[in-house]
Nucleic acid binder design. Structure first.
Lengths: 362, 362
DNA sequence: CTGAAAGCGCTAACAG
DNA sequence: CTGTTAGCGCTTTCAG
C-alpha cells in the first residue's frame, strides 16, 4: 500500500496523476499548502499517492521555487558540548519550520575555505555559523552574495552579518566582581582562541573590571577552547611559583578540564584552594563532581533568536543585519569561593548579582 | 571580480556561456570532472565564470542525475559525546567525498516518525542512523524503497540494513572477566535503553560471562543512556543496603555521570571502594579526574567503515547488506580495581587481555 | 476549481 | 571537441 517494486525509483506526480485520472498540476496542488482543490479530487489524489508511495521531490521543487529549504550550519569540530547542544536545538527548531540542516564541520586544524564553495553550491537558503573561527571575510562574502548569515556565539567587527551572542562583556565583568567580592588574591584568565571575538570580549570585560579594582597583574594562558589546551594552560598556571587562586576560563568546556587537572593532578580543593569559573552553563557543569560556577548562555533562547532571525530574513521583511544579545546569569555552585552577600535563588539555581553598594563603572 | 550586484541571484550556466561566447553545454562540461574541453574554451569559460561568480547549481544537477549528493544522518539528541565525535568525523569524511550531510536530530522523548518523510522527500542518496532508537521498521522501510542504510553503533534483528558496530558482546564479556579477575564481590549493570540492541548485547555478554563464573545475583538499573538517568541509577545502586563494588555502565557517558555521583555524593574512592567501567572510550574518560576504565570503540575506523559501505553501495558494486564489527580493547585506567596479571601497554594506553590460563567458554 | 503549457538550471545523448 | 535538442519533476501562470 506504500510502494510498488523494491528498487523502483520514486513515484512522480505524473504517475500519481495518471492513476488518479487528473492532471499533474492537480497533484501538485494537493501537496501545496495554500492551494484550492475540490475535496473529491483531493481524495482521489491522496489515495493514488499513498498507493504509489509518492512524496513530492523537494529537489525539483527547489529548482523552481529557488529555495532549497536547506539551512547550512557550520560547526567547529572541537568536541565542545555547548555546540553539540546548540546544534541539536537548531536542528530540531529548523525541522519544525520545514527546513533541513546541512551540516559542515570545520576541522579546527585544517583550512576551511572550501566550505564556502560547498555552501554556495548547495544553494542553502541561509547560513548559521556556530562560533567558528572562519575568517571574518567568509561571512561578508556570503552576505554580499545575498545569503542571509547569522553568527551564533560570535561577532565580526563589521556588522555585515547578524549575530546572536551572550553577554560576554557583562558576564565576564560580573565574574570579576564575584571573584573580587570573595576576596581572591591572584587572578588568571584562560583564553579560548586568539581570533575569537567571544574570548576577546570576555577577556576585556574580565581584565578591565579587575583593573578598575586595582588588580595589577593577571596571569594569562591560551587554551584554544579545547580540553587538552585547557589542561596545559592550567598546569602552567598551577605549577608556577605563585599560582593563582582564581581562574576564569573562557568557556565551560575548558573550565571542566581545568577542574579535572586541579583536583586530580594538583590535589586541590575547588572553592577553597582555588576557584575556577566558566562561561556557558553546559549541562555537565551541574554534575556534582564539577559543580561549576559559571555565567550562563541560554542555548534555548539563543537558538530561538537565531531561528527567528533566519525565518524573518527568509520572509524578506527583516533588517539585513541584527545584533542580538541574550541575557544570562551568574550561576553559583561550588567550584569557586562564594562572597558573603549577593546570593539568591532562582529556578532552582543559586545566582549572584552585584550588591547595590558596590560601584559599577560604565 | 567575483560577483555582479549584491542581491542579484546567482549566475547561471547560460549567462556564463553568453559572456564566454560558447554554448551552455560547453560551460557544463568545464564543470564536469571527466569531460573533454579544448584548453582555449575552458579558459574562456573559467574566466567568464569567475567574473560572474558562477557556481554550478547542485539542485539542478541533482534533478537530472537523480543524485542529491546528500547523506542523511540521524542522531539522537541526548548529548552523548560519542555521537558528537562520530557526527563530526562522518561530516568531515563525507565532505571529503563530495557529499553533504543532512542532519536529523531525534528528540529522545518525542515521536520521530515524521523524520522518515523528511528524509525521503529530500531524496538523500543514503542514510546513516547513529544508534538511534527509531523503530526498526524505519530502516527496513528505507531499504525497501531502495535507499542504502547503514546503522552506526546499532543493529536490527533482520539484517536488511548494513551495520557498523563495536564488539559489544565480546567487550562486555571481557569487562566481566576483568572485574572477576580483580575479585569483586557484587556486580551491577546500568543499561542504556531497553530497545537498544547495543545495550542488550553488552548486557548479555556481561551477564552470561558472570553466570559462567557462578555469579548468581547481578543488580540492574536502566540509565536510558542519559547522564541524569545514570545518576539516578547509580544513586539507587549505591544507596542500597548491599551496594555493588563493580558497576558496568552501558556506555561512557553514563559511566562518567556514575563516577561523578559515586565520588561527590557518596564520597567513594574509585578503584578501591567501588569500580566503574564504561564502553566507548570517549575523550573525557581519559581526563585525570575520571580516569575511566572502558572498552574502546574506535570512532575513526567505525566512521571509515561506514563511509566506505555507503560509497560502495552508491557505486552500485556492493552487497546490499554488510554487518561490520570493529575491534576494540579494554583500556585500563584507575576507575576500576586492577587484576594482578594480564596488563600490558599499547599506544600509550594500558590495556588488559584475558590471561591464557583462564577458561573462556564459547 | 482544473488542465495545458512554459519553464527552473542543468546534464546527456546526439549529430556535426 | 562543440552546439543542438531533450528532458529531470515540479510549480506556476493562464485560459477554460
Amino acid at each position: 500500500m506504500t510502494d510498488g517494486a523494491p528498487g523502483r525509483r520514486p513515484a512522480t506526480a505524473h504517475e500519481v496523476a495518471k492513476l488518479a485520472g487528473v492532471s499533474q498540476s492537480a497533484v501538485s496542488r494537493v501537496f501545496t499548502p495554500g492551494a484550492s482543490v475540490a475535496p473529491a479530487t483531493r481524495e482521489r489524489v491522496v489515495a493514488a499517492a499513498s498507493q504509489l508511495g509518492y512524496r513530492p521531490n523537494l529537489v525539483a521543487r527547489s529548482l523552481i521555487t529557488r529555495r532549497s529549504n536547506l539551512i547550512g550550519v557550520v560547526v567547529p569540530g572541537n568536541g565542545n558540548p555547548f555546540y553539540q547542544r546548540a546544534l541539536e536545538a537548531l536542528s530540531v527548531a529548523f525541522a519544525k519550520l520545514g527546513y533541513g540542516v546541512l551540516l559542515f564541520t570545520t576541522d579546527p586544524l585544517a583550512n576551511s575555505d572550501p566550505i564556502l564553495d560547498d555552501v554556495l553550491r548547495y544553494r542553502v537558503d541561509a547560513l548559521v555559523l556556530i562560533s567558528t573561527s572562519l575568517s571574518s571575510r567568509f561571512a561578508e562574502e556570503c552576505v554580499q552574495v545575498g545569503l542571509p548569515v547569522v553568527m551564533f556565539n560570535r561577532k565580526t567587527d563589521s556588522n555585515a552579518a547578524s549575530s546572536v551572542t551572550g553577554e560576554n562583556r557583562l558576564g565576564a565583568e560580573l565574574i570579576a566582581e564575584f571573584l573580587l567580592a570573595a576576596k581572591h588574591r591572584r587572578y588568571a584568565y584562560v583564553a579560548g582562541l586568539e581570533q575569537s571575538s567571544t574570548s576577546r570580549d570576555r577577556e576585556e570585560g574580565f581584565m578591565e573590571c579587575l583593573a578598575r579594582h586595582n588588580v595589577k597583574h593577571v596571569e594569562r594562558q591560551v587554551g584554544h577552547y579545547s580540553a587538552s589546551g585547557a589542561e596545559k594552560a592550567v598546569r602552567a598556571l598551577l605549577g608556577s611559583k605563585q599560582p593563582p587562586d582564581a581562574i576564569f576560563c573562557a568557556n565551560d568546556h575548558m573550565a571542566l578540564a581545568a577542574i579535572s587537572v586541579a583536583r586530580a593532578e594538583f590535589g586541590l580543593q575547588l572553592g577553597s584552594d582555588v576557584s575556577i569559573v566558566g562561561f556557558d552553563n553546559i549541562d555537565m557543569g551541574s554534575w556534582p563532581l564539577f559543580s561549576l560556577t559559571t555565567y550562563s548562555q541560554p542555548v534555548g533562547s539563543m537558538v530561538e533568536r537565531t531561528v527567528d532571525i533566519v525565518a524573518r530574513q527568509l520572509a524578506g521583511d527583516a533588517a539585513l543585519s541584527v545584533q542580538e544579545v541574550t541575557c544570562g546569569q551568574l550561576i553559583v555552585r561550588d567550584s569557586a569561593r562564594k562572597p558573603k552577600s549577593g546570593l539568591s535563588t532562582q529556578d532552582g539555581n543559586c545566582i549572584w548579582t552585584l550588591p547595590q553598594t558596590a560601584s559599577r563603572a560604565g
